[in-house]
Amino acid sequence: MTTHAARANMNLRDEIQAYWSKRAETFDSQPGHEIFSEEERAAWHALLRRHLGDGAGRAALDLACGTAVVSHLLDDLGFEVTGMDWAEPMLERARAKAAKRGRRIRFYLGDAENTLEPDASYDVITNRHLVWTLVDPLAAFREWHRLLKPGGKLLVVDGDFVNAGPIAKAARALSAWLVRLGLGSSGPVNGPVTGEMAATHQSILSRVYFSEGARADAVVALLKEAGFSRVTLDTDMRAIHRTQRKNFSFLKGLERATQHRYAISAQK
């Protein structure tokens, strides 16, 4: 358990790092994080191809790679992949997964907002569910712009996990009511994050830049301010959500499918 004194000596970035280090224990068991079917894998491949094309040996940096789910998708498509994460326990699992599959993916410990990588060193940069956690997204976007080669592409996959629409609110309320009656399972749509971990998640969410929700239009505006061009918003995540729904209860699947989720591609 994290004591009050320990928390007092940690800044927000430290707390984020510690939180995701702890989440590594169960990350791959959670639908929406790991891929649980070939149909879902194909849906992700289609999304990546739609915005990035096939790899053809191009250099890709997967920021906040976690256990390397997206890194392996990029590897499948022929990219030369580097995965970076701030949580060593995530990277341990990422390296083990690559070794098991016999894949040559480079992994290293680093900060997505200050990567220390050379200028113009990547053709493609990706991240999934990173932007909502950023303390200074404009600085991060400028860093990512610096890392890309001229003509290189960025793909952000994220969402607003704060502001639920009316359908999501109704599904969440009904799910909670069923839990109280003993007719449903507890835990949020992304997996079993409860108790102290849930409180930590909420505390972090309340203090990051997008504490009021990472709406796509706000992300697009910051990407343009950071120097990106040809910024394209893609909200068609239906194929991915359809395959993921098999691993959620009906109500949690409905909640997820009606959240404000998106992919944003941008070019240097």
Rank of each mutant, 00 (worst) to 15 (best):
residue 4 H to L: 10
residue 247 N to W: 13
residue 77 L to Y: 04
residue 247 N to F: 15
residue 79 F to R: 11
residue 2 T to K: 01
residue 226 A to D: 04
residue 166 P to E: 03
residue 102 G to V: 12
residue 259 Q to G: 13
residue 51 H to C: 08
residue 151 G to S: 14
residue 145 H to W: 14
residue 97 K to C: 02
residue 192 P to T: 09
residue 211 S to L: 05
residue 241 H to W: 05
residue 164 A to F: 11
residue 205 L to H: 05
residue 257 A to M: 12
residue 194 T to K: 13
residue 167 I to M: 09
residue 132 W to A: 05
residue 18 A to M: 04
residue 141 F to S: 02
residue 238 R to N: 15
residue 41 R to V: 05
residue 50 R to G: 10
residue 35 I to Q: 04
residue 29 S to E: 15
residue 13 R to V: 09
residue 129 H to F: 14
residue 211 S to Y: 12
residue 119 D to A: 15
residue 226 A to M: 03
residue 184 G to H: 11
residue 251 L to F: 03
residue 248 F to Y: 15
residue 107 F to R: 00
residue 119 D to Q: 13
residue 214 A to E: 06
residue 127 N to A: 13
residue 30 Q to P: 04
residue 221 A to M: 11
residue 142 R to D: 10
residue 150 P to W: 10
residue 24 A to V: 01
residue 35 I to P: 07
residue 121 S to R: 08
residue 211 S to A: 15
residue 75 D to P: 01
residue 107 F to W: 03
residue 160 D to Q: 05
residue 249 S to N: 04
residue 218 A to R: 15
residue 213 G to V: 06
residue 46 A to I: 07
residue 53 G to A: 12
residue 137 P to D: 06
residue 31 P to H: 08
residue 175 S to R: 11
residue 67 T to R: 00
residue 137 P to W: 01
residue 78 G to V: 09
residue 111 D to M: 05
residue 186 S to P: 10
residue 242 R to V: 07
residue 158 D to S: 05
residue 257 A to S: 14
residue 55 G to D: 06
residue 214 A to C: 15
residue 170 A to N: 07
residue 33 H to L: 12
residue 172 R to V: 10
residue 161 F to E: 12
residue 35 I to K: 07
residue 258 T to H: 06
residue 147 L to E: 06
residue 65 C to N: 02
residue 69 V to R: 04
residue 197 M to H: 14
residue 21 S to Y: 01
residue 77 L to A: 08
residue 113 E to Y: 04
residue 218 A to G: 13
residue 91 L to T: 03
residue 48 L to D: 01
residue 107 F to C: 04
residue 7 R to M: 09
residue 233 L to P: 09
residue 209 Y to R: 09
residue 107 F to Y: 10
residue 39 E to F: 12
residue 100 K to S: 15
residue 114 N to S: 15
residue 139 A to R: 09
residue 73 L to Y: 06
residue 128 R to K: 14
residue 96 A to V: 02
residue 176 A to V: 02
residue 94 A to N: 02
residue 262 Y to R: 13
residue 237 M to H: 10
residue 228 F to Q: 04
residue 91 L to H: 01
residue 217 D to C: 10
residue 263 A to N: 12
residue 225 E to Y: 08
residue 144 W to Y: 07
residue 28 D to T: 10
residue 74 L to H: 05
residue 143 E to M: 07
residue 60 A to G: 05
residue 174 L to A: 03
residue 103 R to S: 08
residue 54 D to C: 13
residue 239 A to G: 13
residue 250 F to L: 12
residue 152 G to S: 09
residue 180 R to T: 11
residue 233 L to V: 14
residue 52 L to M: 12
residue 4 H to W: 03
residue 89 P to S: 04
residue 59 A to M: 11
residue 257 A to W: 07
residue 121 S to W: 02
residue 39 E to M: 09
residue 96 A to I: 02
residue 199 A to C: 02
residue 246 K to E: 15
residue 40 E to S: 05
residue 41 R to T: 12
residue 175 S to K: 06
residue 217 D to K: 14
residue 256 R to M: 15
residue 149 K to H: 13
residue 49 R to E: 15
residue 76 D to H: 07
residue 11 N to Q: 01
residue 217 D to A: 14
residue 257 A to I: 06
residue 7 R to Y: 07
residue 123 D to N: 09
residue 193 V to T: 15
residue 132 W to L: 08
residue 12 L to E: 00
residue 170 A to M: 04
residue 115 T to H: 09
